[in-house]
Design a protein around this nucleic acid. Sequence first.
RNA 1: UGGGCUGUAGUAUAAUGGUAGUACAGCGGAUUCUGGUUCCGUAUGUGGGGGUUCGACUCCUCCCAGCCCAGCCA
Length: 556
Amino acid sequence: MENKEFTNFIHDIIDEDNESGKHGGRVQTRFPPEPNGYLHIGHAKSICLNFGTAIKYGGKCNLRFDDTNPSKEEDEYVRSIREDVHWLGFDWAEREFYASDYFEELYEFAVELIKLGKAYVCELSATEIREFHGTLKEPGKPSPWRERSIEENLELFERMRSGEFEEGKYTLRAKIDMSSPNMHMRDPVIYRIMYAHHHRTGNKWCIYPMYDFTHCLSDSLERITHSLCTLEFEVHRPLYDWFLDELEVFHSRQIEFARLNLTYTVMSKRKLLMLVKEGYVSGWDDPRMPTICGLRRRGYTPESIREFCDRIGVAKRDSMVDLALLEHCLRDHLNKIAPRYMAVLNPLKVIIDNYPADKTEYLEAINNPEDPDAGSRMVPFSREIYIEREDFMEDAPKKFYRLTPGSEVRLRYAYFIQCENVVKDAEGNILEIHCTYDPASSGGNSPDGRKVKATLHWVSIPTAFKAEVRHFDNLLTVSDPATEDKDFLELINKDSLHILENCPMEPALKDLKAGERIQFERIGYYCVDSKDSAPEKPVFNRTVGLKDEWARMQNR
RNA sequence: UGGGCUGUAGUAUAAUGGUAGUACAGCGGAUUCUGGUUCCGUAUGUGGGGGUUCGACUCCUCCCAGCCCAGCCA
C-alpha cells in the first residue's frame, strides 16, 4: 500500500524487534474500538496506523471490539464501525474479535491472580475506595480486605460471578502497591458487579472486567506483537506489563502515540454528542461532522483520508494538524477522479442578442481534463444563458478579468462574448445583461488567435434544471478551542450551513446517482447527498471548494 | 509541584554524533479554454543556560514550557 515510504518511531521499534528476532519477524496489530459511538477522523489515524503497519510488515491487523462495559455499548455501533473501517479500505478477514469473547478466559486469569495472592475481593464502597486511594501527592491506604485468605477470595469471587451480591457490593482488586506514585498501580479494580444486558453475552455475566485487565490480556491472547494506543494510556503501561508478567503469558508491547487534533474541529465523543443532541447538526452523519460517516456523506474519498493519515505522520508530541492539509489531500484526489459539470450558484441572466432566438446547439465539453478516459459530453447552448453574478462587474478593478462592459471573455466550450448593455431595475440592481457573440469562436477558440483573459462557466436557460446546493463551514469559529478561554458552546459556528435553492444546472447533472462526486467547473467539488436527494431531484453537498486566487486577492 | 511524557520553520514531520531536509500553509513568477491543475523560485526552525566532543537536534546536566494520571469509563 501507499505508506511504504512513510516511517515513524513505531516502525523503528518494529525494525529493531525484527532485527533481534523478538517475534520471529511476525507483526500483529489490532484496532480496538469501544462500540459506544461513531468513528471519526481521529480513529482513522489509528486505523491507518494499525492496518497500515500490518500491511507494511506483511503482518495482520485484527478488529477487536473492546466491549467490557455493557451499560454503554450497543450493536448499532458495532455495525457502523465495521462499515467505516471497510469503507476506509481495510480488511480484517475472519479476525473480528470481541473482548467479550474472552470473558471466560479472563475470569480464569483473575482466579489465577487470586491464587498467586495478587488479587483480592474488596468490600469498600466506591466512595471508600476513592478515600483510600490517596491523591496525586499522598499515598493511598491499604483496604481492610487486602489480606483476605486466598481461599476466601476464591469463594467470594465465585459468588460474585454467580450473582449472589448486589451491584457495587464487591470488587476484585489487583494487589499491587497502595503507595505507588502511579495512581493506576494502587490496587486497581479489575472486576465489578454489573447487572446489565450485554450486546453479545446477554445476561450470562453479572461481573465485568475493567479495561486495564482486559486489554493487555486480549492482546496477549491474540498474540498482538505491538499494541498501539494513544498517549493518555502511557501511565497505564506499568499495569499492562504487570498483569502479563504476573500471569506469565505472551507479552505484547504497548506503544503510545499522539492522537490527532484538527484545526476548527472537535474530536471528543462528548462534544460531538452535544452537537448532535443540541441540534447544531442533523446527526452523526451530518456533512459538517468529522465522523467517518459525516466525511463520507460530505464527499470525502477513502483514498484522500488514507493519504492524509500517511502524511501527518506519527509521533509522541501533542499536535494540531491544519485542516488545510486534509483539504489538500481531498482536492488532490478529487481533481483526478471527479468529472466536470457546469452549474451556476448565483445566476445572472445573459441575453446574446445576435444569437438566433429559436436555436439550440450542442457543444462538446471535456468531462475531465486530468483523465482522458473520462471522455466528453454534449452541452446545450442557446441565446439565453445564466452566468455567475460574481463573473460580471460594471466598474471593475484592474485585476478583475472576467466580464465587464467592453471586455471579451470566453464561455467555456462555447463562444467569445462581449457585454453591450446592462439592464437595471429602479433601485439600480442589475436584472440582466445583453451581449453579442462571435460566431467564428464556436467551441471556444477564435480562428484569428486572439486571446481572452477569462473563461466563464454558464448554463443554458431553456434546458436548465434547478437544484439545491448546500455549503458547509467549519463547526467551530476558532482553530484551537483548547487555547480559548470561552466555553465550548460559545465557540460553535452557528452559521455553518448555507442552503442555495434553485441553482441552474446543465441537464446531465439530473441523472447522477447518490454519493456521486463531481466538480462544478470553477467552483468546487460536490457530491450528491445520499439522504436528501430524490430521483431527478439531486441535492448537492459542497465537499470542498476549488482554490480561489481571486477571492484571496480580494481578502488582502 | 508525586509520577509519567513531550519540546525541530506558521503547522505537521525527517535527520539516530558529520551540509537541519520534506509536505501543507504563505509569498513571487511561468503555463493554462477552470483565477483549478501543473511547473519554477522564495522567506521562516532545533524551548533556554551550562557541559562532553574536532564536531551536538542527537549525549550529560540544570532550568523553562506544555500534556497525561486521583472512574467500580475506555
